[in-house]
């Protein structure tokens, strides 16, 4: 999937999941977002979103919590500590890749 960029986390390096990660990383620590609100912010279909969320959950990046509030089922989604760190690593690597770009990414560091 990440043919040219093996150093990029394949779980995050896909448009839909990257968008999910950006949105969830915007939450304050300990906050959760309801599934419908996340869906609305991303403008994704419910099915598409849950498919991608499952992949992120399998990697331990997101936490999906299903509870009931006044007998109505509610689903909350949040980023795990691990997910937050993975997203930070991902963006750091992107920036490093782009910084080495000008000469096609030779490994040399100039002093």
């Amino acid at each position: 999937m990440t043919e040219g960029w093996p150093e990029l986390d394949p779980v995050i390096h896909a448009q839909a999941r990257l968008r999910v990660m950006v949105t969830l990383s915007g939450l304050a620590d300990g906050d959760r977002l309801t599934f419908p609100r996340l869906q609305e912010l991303l403008e994704m279909t419910a099915g598409n979103l849950s498919t991608h969320l499952r992949k992120l959950e399998d990697a331990g990046y997101t936490h999906v919590e299903k509870t009931h509030r006044r007998r109505t089922p509610v689903t909350y989604v949040s980023l795990t500590q691990r997910g937050r760190r993975a997203f930070e690593d991902y963006t750091a690597r992107l920036e490093a890749l782009l910084a080495n770009r000008p000469d096609g990414g030779t490994g040399t560091t100039d002093h």
């Binding site: 419910a46 099915g47 089922p73």
Partner: peptide, 13 residues
């Protein structure tokens, strides 16, 4: 599938 999914979420989710 998530129970809170709004109307029209098809089973092909």
């Amino acid at each position: 599938d998530d129970p809170t999914a709004p109307r029209g979420s098809d089973p092909a989710a």
